[in-house]
Design a protein around this nucleic acid. Structure first.
Lengths: 233, 233, 233, 233
DNA sequence: TATGAATGAGAGTTCATTCAT
DNA sequence: TATGAATGAACTCTCATTCAT
């Protein structure tokens, strides 16, 4: 092309000239990044707006050019983080009709990589931390993530039981079985600074978990807990 | 007569009249109960000392007769809660040399009952919630609970593998597998108000989990994750 | 007698021992006095809560023990000032059936004395000053004062015209004729620091005004403005 | 080009097309108009510079191209409004040697029309409202208006008494008598939204007032208030 | 000229903590 | 012991003013 100079590219330099041009569009994201880091580190209430501003390299007042309040920031944070992930995961779960263990193994590398990204786990952690004081956070997260993924996962497990791919198990229990170890792994790592033998490696946990489930979910085995799946409330 | 019974003086009974004659010695505990309830409900920072006082039925100033600061309260809270439980559990783990699945099944009712008590789960939840802003909380909990139970559990699993009661598995992974589902169950219940088919019943989750582990940990199976247990950091 | 020491009377001194005893009940009034002085002097918005507190001899925070907000103070101020005055004036107007000029002359000393008290005129002045930014102020004043006095005055004038005590005049006009000179007198005095020959003496203005009205309202004269009294909106 | 008529370019007319081609010279006035409207409506302190700018159709920064500060705007506002009016009124008063009641009747239509213009009464109202916080406002208004009109009015009344056109009356009192009802009429209308039978019609008030004065100032009557005119301070 | 992003001092309000009673 | 009025530091949010573009 003869016209590569997009109007936003001053000189075709390498990439980040962070102070050459005050990029209005980038500010909100930079502020949210700063806020996320600080909220996770010290908690929402103990983080001053001025801290966020300073970390993002702007003045206190500038924050309010982009967000109407501190509360709005934490909501925007969660909102931003839950973008398309939930939908795509839910879609894959809905489309799948085989053995969950196979699906989980194929999902493993992606999920492990996602969870290893500090900016990704930080958000659910934040939600858990602050949900007490900010009921809306839990509501947002639930509406945008959980309410999409949970039914999809439940359905997927139910179909797998039905089709005889795995032994009979309450889908709600199955979900807790699969995600629980990962959650606890994250909590020990982030909250208590206790790292397993394999370090902060979600893949190892996930991998070991699947090894257990390979045998533990064998369709030849009798129903788990003797329970018949019921409706979740 | 000349000595009318002041309305606050009960008939001089034995003791178990928690409403009358509960003074001095009971105060700190009543304050901690009130604090725990409020901290869990609204978070530490959003709970005012006056709220705690009012809920405990005393004046704001009285709180400072028993605790030097608000921070001291949350620490005392955690301290109190982790009393002898950890030690006794750790002791049982250390003494045990058989199949973990058997131990877990025998522990099940006790553990489930404990976790169902709101005042019990409230504390770990609080620690997770507030650890960001109060690093000492995590430290206390770790020193008083985790550092006792974790090595004991790890050793118990290691011995079980060694003795061939279960297939080879990294004890750290085993721990996450066993406790993770319970942790997630609690989080979904408390934070997101999502309750499984079986309600807020830890026993059902625990029971189902053990069904899975019965098969999944069969000693005839090859090592989990192909991993050799290493030291935890 | 032998027991003169009432618990509130430290030594039987003259009267005001303002710092010996922190009189909780007096605080709100002291704060309102301070607020009234400052609001009148510098305007509501340019008065800092801390200024009020300092003037009342307390700390900034103490203000909020007595008033939930700065806005609440100005409203309380107006509320307090309009106590029973309006009612009593309205009652006298309603009860009167004679010549308004007689009534006005008898009212003169009382009204003049009232208006000469700085704490009295300060309030209507404040209302006029701040009504723009605080519509509720105007509403309070109107509800508590104007809406009582105005209809009473209107009725009184109407009856006087009817009975032939004064020439026909629109009561609304009569009201403006009587009160207007006093209002302007106050404005010139307070706002522009311009004092008439007689100083800030409302009595002189009132007196002169009545001299004019004695002749100007003579019932033998034709209707004022040729207008028939109509309803006020 | 065949398409010269940009929608903003009117046919090159003479001048009186205030919507098109209003640039440079008109800006300050437009800004003051916007400021006057907003100051009157919400008060000086509660009006943001940005509000003024938006109402005038320019950016916030542009305001500072024309006025050095927000304070300067309110002063300019008052300055602008008191242009030649005061001088011309003062001149007429100074030149007049007859019966004030005649003069006032001849002035009536003009004065009533002036006061009915919202942009005219808005300024004295603003001065009264904001004088507390902006002593310079009162000073400007006094220097530019009151100090011209007041002595002229006083002289005119003094001459009229001297010449026997009206009964003896303190000119300062006379002034309050004449202007007071109009002032109160405006206050009730603007501040309390209370309108007399005749609506917001200054002419009716003025007219009725003069009817009263016709009789009340009859030169045959004895001196008003028994007072001898003295110097105003 | 004109824009509007950015600044930063300052205001209202809250609340842990103290202390006279 | 117990109270609760009082303090004052700290925090969120606003807005007049500046300045790079």
């Amino acid at each position: 092309m003869t016209e590569p100079n997009a109007p936003d590219q001053p000189p075709p330099q390498t990439e980040a000239a962070p102070k050459f041009r005050r990029r209005k569009e980038a500010r909100p994201d930079e502020l949210l990044d700063a806020a996320l880091a600080l909220f996770t580190e010290k908690g929402f209430d103990r983080t001053r707006v001025e801290d966020i501003a300073r970390r993002a390299g702007v003045s206190k007042g500038a924050v309010y050019l982009y967000f109407p309040s501190k509360d709005a920031m934490i909501e925007a944070l969660v909102d931003r983080a839950v973008g398309g992930v939930a939908q795509s995961v839910a879609a894959r779960l809905n489309d799948f009709n085989g053995d969950p263990r196979v699906l989980l193994r194929s999902l493993l590398p992606m999920v492990a990589a996602k969870l290893a990204d500090p900016k990704v786990i930080a958000v659910p952690r934040l939600v858990v931390q602050e949900a007490g004081g900010h009921p809306r956070l839990a509501a947002i997260y639930r509406a945008r993530v959980i309410d999409h993924v949970l039914p999809a996962a439940r359905g997927m497990f139910a179909r797998a039981v039905e089709a005889g791919h795995i032994r009979a198990i309450d889908p709600d229990l199955a979900l807790r079985l699969v995600m629980g170890p990962l959650a606890l792994h994250a909590i020990m790592d982030q909250v208590f600074d206790i790292h397993a033998s394999g370090g902060t490696d979600f893949a190892a946990v996930f991998d070991g978990l699947l090894d257990i489930l390979d045998a533990g979910l064998d369709p030849a085995l009798p129903p788990v807990g003797g329970a018949t799946p019921r409706k979740e409330s």
